[in-house]
Design a protein around this nucleic acid. Structure first.
Lengths: 252, 252
DNA sequence: CGGGCGGTTGATCCACGTCAATTTAGGTGG
DNA sequence: CCACCTAAATTGACGTGGATCAACCGCCCG
């Protein structure tokens, strides 16, 4: 069976797969410069799964038997400490690998992943990781770049938590989300994922209360528009100024 | 020229190289399961450099033309923010790769690396990275594991900064250093590297003042012994208890 | 022996976390 | 379609951990 036959077959055999843009997947940075044949075999060897908002893909501590690629939608990866405090490790965007414990030499998942929007994922058994890395140098370097990218993001976050106050951190976090998961629609940028105040707090190392207070203040200044589990950036420039540390007064 | 001839030659041509345990380098996790011939070629293609305490290997922002392997000694990697605040990104231990900007798709070094002990490093031009990764699958996976390891450490740090108070964080940091760079010598564990209060502060996201106060308090309780740029753990169990959050009173 | 960096220690202050009470928005089932 | 229920969000009052400011000490090195 060729890849195209495979795709053709999928489309009528499983409604969840209708609308998957396989061409776009093939152009992901992760798969850059990978021989078409190998890539198609790889994609065919994975299975597609649909995840509804709020549904979990894997849980913290669970034995890791698969790794994943987010095709469409949005996921949150969270961790809970022994004392019961939460942190939001990262937001997963389309095209991102996630839950790749084997690369980290772990046998369990270090966090829990929950869909923050209706999502479509591709899953492979762990064994595929090893073989695919070893048989395909391109993919190995691409995967390494992806992890390297995340390492840099983690360092950036450490830098922010260590040196910036809550307002700046929150502004930074929201700007980043707007960049990565924002949908421009005439009236500002809508964040295309479900995020509670608690999530934002867990992302910026603060409390839901501080987040709430700041968002309220910003809303009254017309910088953002925030409702229950939703958020819209109205004045990106002002937000950027806050992120840069210019906590100006409202006399323009 | 064979590897052994190469090593033999080095030993009389450069006094800095005397005493390098090449056998030990060959058994590094990074080089695990790598064909001997390729590994020897790789080692031969790098150059050895000796770094004195306080000396810098590279500076933040400098164009990255080489990547490095720490053979012996200890390095600190620091970052300075635009506002002039410092963070200590990590401590480099023997066997660690560092300054590998190419893997992160950067053309400059994101931080500055300074020797915190007399150190010996191996350097390669960046081009070697690409070729060595692509021709040697083993090395690629090993390197990825190493980076994955660091990603997990970064996440652990984020978790600590976000959820633990200064005392616990500092206890954790010192315990980790004792584990990685500690030298047991009859009377506690001596940390084999130069670390100022400011360094410890930059490592735990606090101020030199808080670090100083805590160390003073701990010293009076016989948990540590701290002097100018040096540190010794006397009571690891107590320190561990502090790290675990048991802030007991001194009635034993 | 003097200058400077690293360290200590006290006094003060405030950004934020904590605690507590209330409101609001969805979702759900009758 | 409304009434109810629960989770999310808001808002105020309060307390405090730890940052900041300031003064001083003392070990090293030149």
């Amino acid at each position: 069976m060729t890849f195209d036959e495979f795709v053709g077959q999928l489309e009528w055999s499983d409604s969840a797969l209708v609308g998957i843009d396989w061409q776009q997947i093939r152009t992901l940075p992760l798969f850059a410069e990978m021989p078409t044949l190998e890539l198609e075999q790889l994609l065919m060897s994975g299975s597609v799964r649909q995840i509804y908002t709020g549904q979990k893909v894997f849980r913290q501590g669970q034995v890791a038997e698969e790794f994943f690629l987010l095709i469409d939608g949005r996921l949150k990866v969270t961790q809970t400490t022994a004392e019961g405090r939460h942190i939001l490790v990262r937001v997963v965007h389309p095209g991102d690998l996630f839950g790749f414990a084997p690369a980290l030499q772990r046998h369990d998942y270090p966090g829990t992943s929950v869909a923050a929007a209706k999502s479509l994922i591709l899953c492979w058994p762990n064994a595929v990781w090893t073989s695919m890395i070893e048989t395909n140098a391109r993919l190995a370097t691409n995967a390494m770049k992806a992890i390297g990218q995340r390492l840099q993001e983690a360092h950036a976050r450490i830098r922010e938590i260590s040196t910036e106050n809550v307002e700046r951190r929150l502004a930074h976090a929201i700007l980043r989300l707007a960049e990565q998961a924002g949908q421009e629609d005439g009236n500002g940028i809508r964040l295309d994922l479900i995020l509670t105040r608690l999530d934002l707090a867990a992302l910026t190392s603060t409390t839901q209360h501080s987040v709430s207070r700041l968002l309220s203040a910003w809303e009254s200044q017309g910088i953002v528009e925030s409702g229950r589990q939703k958020l819209r950036v109205l004045d990106k420039a002002r937000l950027q100024a806050l992120a840069d540390g210019q906590s100006w007064d409202n006399s323009d």
